[in-house]
Each structure stands twice: as C-alpha cells, then as structure tokens.
C-alpha cells in the first residue's frame, strides 16, 4: 500500500516539491492507479522475454563525420541565464 511517505520519497527522487494538498491528492491517486497496475500480474509471462520496443531493435552505425553544429547564440537564447558564452548557474562549491 502506498503511503504519504512513499510519495514524498518518490517526489524527492523526481526533483519535485509537493505541497501538502498535492501529497494528499497524489497519495490517493497512486493507491488507485497502482492497484489497477497490479492487474498485470494476472498475465502469464513465464515464457515471455522483455521487449523494450514493439519491433526488433538493432544497433545503428554511421560514420563519425564532423558536421556543422548549432549556432551558440541561438542555443543560448533559450536559456534563462547566461554569461553570453555559457549557461550560468549558482556556484556549487565554495
């Protein structure tokens, strides 16, 4: 059974802060959704392997060629904060 402590832990792993109301709501939602998800245990998968995709997957190779990259100015234009040459962040070390 999912508890509010589980939800707080999962939110932390997901890099989310939840308000008290959200914790209550998501705990309720998740109880219902997870009990629905548990129905997959009724499926016999003894002989089934796992599929990550619906179709067969294979390695895709290509030549390691140098191609034109993106324009730095355009890439930085979407950033909330830059120093003109790079993304800028608060200091991580003293």
């Amino acid at each position: 059974m999912i508890t509010r402590e589980d939800i707080k832990h999962i939110a932390d792993l997901s890099m989310l802060n939840l308000s008290e109301d959200e914790i209550v709501k998501y705990t309720e939602n998740m109880k219902e959704i997870v009990s629905f998800a548990n129905t997959i245990n009724e499926v016999d998968t003894k002989n089934a392997t796992e599929s990550a995709f619906a179709l067969d997957t294979y390695n895709v190779f290509r030549k390691d060629e140098v191609k034109e990259s993106f324009n730095r100015e355009i890439l930085l234009s979407n950033a909330p904060s830059t120093n003109g040459e790079a993304f800028s962040l608060p200091g991580m070390m003293n």
Binding site: I2, D6, I7, I10, A11, L13, S14, L16, Y26, M30, I33, V34, A37, I40, N41, V43, T45, A48, T49, E50, S51, A52, A54
Partner: peptide, 24 residues
C-alpha cells in the same frame, strides 16, 4: 511520480520489467 515509482528500487521488477514482458 508514477513513472519514477515503477522504476524505483524494489518496484522495478514487479512493474516495469513485468510490463515489458506483457508487452511481448
């Protein structure tokens, strides 16, 4: 939250791995 839960330690096999088998 649901996605992180089914991938988290202790639940991965029961949910994510099982679902990948049901996909097959």
């Amino acid at each position: 939250i649901l996605g992180t839960y089914v991938l988290s330690s202790g639940y991965y096999d029961a949910y994510y791995k099982k679902a990948q088998k049901v996909r097959t």
